[in-house]
Design a protein around this nucleic acid. Structure first.
Ligand code: FES
Ligand code: FES
Lengths: 145, 145
DNA sequence: AAAATAAAATACATTTTTATCTTTTATTAG
DNA sequence: CTAATAAAAGATAAAAATGTATTTTATTTT
């Protein structure tokens, strides 16, 4: 469904959110240890997200990634689109060049429902809510194998 | 969502179904022209599907791909799993090593619904139904750009 | 039996995704 | 100001997905 980059990105950002209290910043190493993701690869993803203003970062001692006031109303959808683009939400399930109701593929109507259900989920959930689930212990960002 | 291989495979098999009347067989070239898919790549996919008994084939003159009596009750789900596996239907949306209700990721409950909705769709639809949509002109297997 | 046909198998090539390592730049602490 | 720190940027590499071409095998027609 989502790319690996997107999975790591979501987990990383939720973790940053869950730890982002008054100016507290997190280093890539810490993040990746917590969410069980490859360090250099995840760093690239976070850098791209910082460029797109989904998260904030500063260099130097006590530097790291954090959440800014302006980023407080970001939805999961924004994050996913920033990494994977919007093909998943517009594209045809069977790969036709364009999804269209007037020229539909055989699963268009049903697939559209699924696709829109997913979009609704991602648009509804804020990163704040998801982070809260983790902070409260109701959800986790790494398997406990 | 689905891999390219799976998209081509679904389109190809639906087309074979839509044309499979009394012993009529279809060559890869014809199939790919109709569904606008890369020929050699699609051939591989169809060969794999033939090995897994999702479609039938014979070599030689008048040979090609066709649907056998034994393949008449195949659902779209069988086809998708034969090509892409079942990770999409079991795996965690955020890439945790295992999806589990007792150790859920922050989107587990909602994602599970989406995932199961998709599975329901694929399990409900038979290839016969989908082919009928195409035969009757209600749906198409290639964009009309 | 020979020629023609079309899938099957094999080999190869390209592109995209995922992952790692090194160098540079910005920031802060001392 | 200097040294230490951590992200940013750039270079490489490995793996997987996608795509193409060639050879082999089975089948049928003549
Ligand atoms: S045309 Fe295929 S999903 Fe809309
Ligand atoms: S644990 Fe993530 S979807 Fe179930």
């Amino acid at each position: 469904m989502f790319s690996k980059a997107c999975e790591y990105g979501i987990r990383a950002v939720i973790y940053i959110w869950s730890q982002s209290k008054e100016g507290n910043k997190l280093g890539v190493k810490d993040i990746c240890k917590e969410i069980d993701a490859p360090e250099y690869f995840t760093a690239k993803i976070l850098q791209a997200l910082a460029r797109q203003n989904i998260v904030s970062s500063t260099k130097g001692p006590n530097g790291g990634f954090y959440i800014d006031k302006e980023q407080e109303n970001i939805h999961l959808m924004d994050l996913v689109v920033a990494i994977d683009g919007d093909k998943l939400f517009n594209g045809c399930g069977l790969g036709l060049k364009q999804c269209s109701a007037t020229n539909p593929c055989p699963i268009h109507h049903e697939y559209k429902e699924i696709r829109e259900g997913l979009a609704r989920l991602l648009k509804t959930k804020t990163l704040r809510e998801l982070a809260e689930e983790v902070s409260s212990g109701k959800a986790t960002l790494h398997s406990v194998i």
